[in-house]
């Protein structure tokens, strides 16, 4: 993501977690529907600043959304002066992670006067303009400058992202491990659960039956995925090199999960509430 709340711009940009504008917000509600032929994206812009809305209405600024898929060299922008827009993309043009980010861009030089513009910018420009305004702060934007931006919206398209998560997890044995000792290896393409020979046999036998699978989901797999999420959070770049990280990230984005939630909460959602599968186990007392 090239544009973000953390970035410093040379001018005030309305965005989340920034104090360039006080008590104002800009967001985009995005709806994505796809089938084998096309990907349909609907975007609804939610902008609170009346001053910026006025400039959009006057055609001095526009809403722009940029859709990017770096895996397929795809990038396209749509421009609108209305508060909603949509685009249909050929499904064959996208694969992997797709990012949508929306902006308000100045189409001409434009002055934004607002009580909610941070006063720091007013002081800066007043010094240049040699004038002051007690009630309204103001800033002059040049053509092409960004007035506002949203957080990125991510979704993913790949047949692998719709497979069960365990398709990117391998079970392997290590003769040096004894009994119930085990470890997780995140360094390879697939997430690897390494167990003792004895455990591997238990795993094989459990995998054959629904009750056994439920037990595995709530033990080995749950722990392994929770650990993988920790690793992913600590090393986000791993998504570029390891398939398991790519698949987990895509599922997190597609399911709308917040990766900043606790590991066990994220894992519960990724595995579709695995505790419920314990219902498959028949207890013998």
């Amino acid at each position: 993501m090239r544009h973000s709340a953390q970035k410093s711009y040379q001018y005030p940009v309305l965005r989340t977690n920034s104090e360039d504008y006080i008590n104002e917000s800009f967001a985009a509600e995005i709806d994505v529907e796809f089938n084998a032929v096309s990907v349909n994206i609907s975007i609804k812009y939610i902008l609170s600043s009346e001053e910026i809305k006025r400039e959009i209405f006057n055609r001095k600024a526009s809403y722009i959304s940029v859709i990017t898929c770096k895996d397929t060299f795809y990038s396209h922008s749509i421009r609108s002066n209305h508060k909603s827009d949509s685009i249909e993309i050929n499904a064959g043009d996208l694969r992997g992670n797709v990012e949508i980010q929306s902006f308000v861009i100045a189409e001409k030089n434009v002055v934004i006067k607002s009580q909610n513009l941070n006063a720091d910018y007013n002081m800066f420009q007043s010094a240049i303009l040699n004038e002051s305004n007690d009630q309204f702060n103001q800033f002059t934007y040049d053509k092409g400058d960004m007035l506002a931006l949203t957080d990125s919206y991510l979704f993913a398209i790949d047949r692998e992202y719709f497979k069960p998560l365990q398709s990117c997890i391998d079970i392997d044995d290590d003769p040096e491990l004894k009994g119930g000792d085990w470890r997780i290896d995140t360094s390879e393409n697939h997430l690897k659960i390494v167990v003792s020979k004895e455990m591997k046999q238990i795993w094989s036998s459990l995998s054959q039956q629904e009750a056994g699978k439920a037990a595995l989901f709530n033990s080995l797999y749950f722990t392994a995925i929770s650990y993988a999420i920790q690793v992913l959070r600590a090393e986000p770049d791993i998504v570029n090199t390891n398939k398991w990280a790519e698949v987990i990230t895509a599922k997190i984005n597609n399911l709308g999960i917040n990766i900043e939630e606790e590991d066990y909460r994220v894992t519960t959602k990724l595995l579709n509430e695995p505790l419920l599968s314990l219902n498959n186990i028949t207890y013998e007392y």
């Binding site: 990017t68 092409g144 960004m146």
Partner: peptide
């Protein structure tokens, strides 16, 4: 590209 929306040019 860090300060401009190059895609919209």
């Amino acid at each position: 590209g860090g300060s401009n929306v190059l895609e919209a040019l």
